[in-house]
Design a protein around this nucleic acid. Structure first.
Lengths: 249, 249
DNA sequence: AAATTAAATTTCAAATATAGAAATATTAAA
DNA sequence: TTTAATATTTCTATATTTGAAATTTAATTT
């Protein structure tokens, strides 16, 4: 057998996950319904999480996220130092290109946004720090898959179903393998509105001195020109930026 | 009796708290020692937290914070919208004054840093988002105590021991009460190196249209002049800034 | 203002999941 | 290769959690 997992802790985090799914307030009844658990149990977990400081009760039975997570989140981002090291590069990149940029790491089968920089325009496409991006239908995700150890990639392909999300999503494992081969040859990945309609992206890997991929940088936005006319220019700047990161790592 | 608290969840967060106390990596043996729990138990909790995605195993038995918290932290900060609303005010303030500035809320008996802006200088005093500041020996903390409901303040005073941290820490309840009365009269609070040697601060409350205190703003740094020669000027600017927040809330 | 309803909270016994001892596996150091 | 230290698994007594039922609280309708 493998190490035994504590069910209470799992349940507590399932409740916390409800907050990441767009809710900002939660009651015992809502949590119970959403997770299909007993309402009394939900009630007790909410109170336990409040006792700890993870949640704050705003009125009888109504809970919000507490600032405890602000600290843990801040630590998670700065402990590797990666996010901090990449931030100035992203800032410069976003200024230069006039488009939103971000950096990811790969964790639990998905690309996770660890830093971003937004363009100085009134309207732009934004992403939340900590957001998790599907591996098979995003530029970052495909990049990570492409540069992953082969056996890990195979394992990933075996356990993941390629469910169509937009008209452009790649849903055939064979097609995806071909795409990943291409990405490895090209050294960059494209998202052609495969995850969200009208959202395009161009991503390149960031490697350390040993050639190991430690992050990925991208430009993203609502303009298809990112991956058509402007692709060569953007690509050059992205690759320069990715290279300039190495010195700081 | 009161709602029963789930011990497993409490234990899980005690382990996570070890990370906020300056550690970036943890093993079962270390956790067990730090929390005086059985090593096998610690081992299982670490694995449970990894299973959930709260931690990541970097090598056999060695764990780091996962980026799950980046998302929860981001949500916690933006859900109230307070941090986002105050950020531009802080940025401007830090630029104008050439000193570090921050904003807090009051949660679980302490002032919690929810936003900050740093001066454009090579060396400066920094604070981590999410850091919790003792109520009795910081400018923010004393401000919150001063403007709190009287019965809550009394309850707080009853359950808290005023332990000296620096030579300037106020340790007598009577003296603290007098200080809080003074703060209420003045409308601002000072930290005269009461929490950290050579760290000074000046803080003012942010109120909403109903006059309820919803945040606090401060200038802080390593220069005593913050609370001596420059106090009048800084105070004026802080109070203007605090006032300007109201429109955004 | 009283009655009604819905949800939150507490109490208690049964069921279950957790804790820790002991054994084993793994890694690093000598 | 041996030794030592720590990580991991197995097993079962026991402490903890669970959920039904009862009670309290607050909001909504009459």
């Amino acid at each position: 057998m493998t190490t035994q997992i504590n069910g209470s802790v799992v349940k507590a985090f399932k409740i916390l996950d409800l907050f990441t799914e767009g809710r900002s307030e939660l009651t015992a009844t809502e949590a119970a319904r959403a997770l299909k658990i007993n309402m009394i149990t939900a009630h007790r977990f909410l109170h336990t999480l409040e006792h700890i400081g993870a949640l704050v009760m705003v009125s009888r039975g109504v809970f919000r996220l507490g600032y405890l997570f602000a600290e843990l989140g801040d630590r998670a981002l700065r402990d590797g130092g990666l996010a901090a090291a990449l931030q100035p590069v992203l800032d410069q990149l976003a200024r230069d290109l006039g488009e939103a940029c971000m950096a990811t790491v790969f964790e639990r089968d998905m690309a996770v946004c660890i830093a971003k920089a937004l363009p100085d325009r009134p309207l732009y496409v934004d992403i939340r720090i900590g957001s998790r991006l599907d591996a098979f239908c995003t530029a970052h995700g495909k990049l990570w898959l492409a540069f992953m150890e082969e056996d890990q990639r195979d394992a990933w392909l075996n356990r993941t179903r390629l469910q169509a999300i937009t008209a452009n999503t790649i849903t055939s494992p064979t097609a995806l393998r071909q795409e990943l081969d291409q990405i490895r040859r090209d050294g960059y990945a494209v998202n052609n509105a495969e995850r969200e309609k009208d959202i395009y992206a161009l991503a390149v890997p960031v490697t350390n001195r040993n050639g190991k991929m430690i992050s990925a940088l991208s430009v993203f936005g609502a303009s298809a020109s990112l991956i058509t006319q402007n692709r060569p220019t953007l690509l050059t700047r992205l690759q320069e930026a990715a290279k300039s990161c190495q010195t700081g790592l």
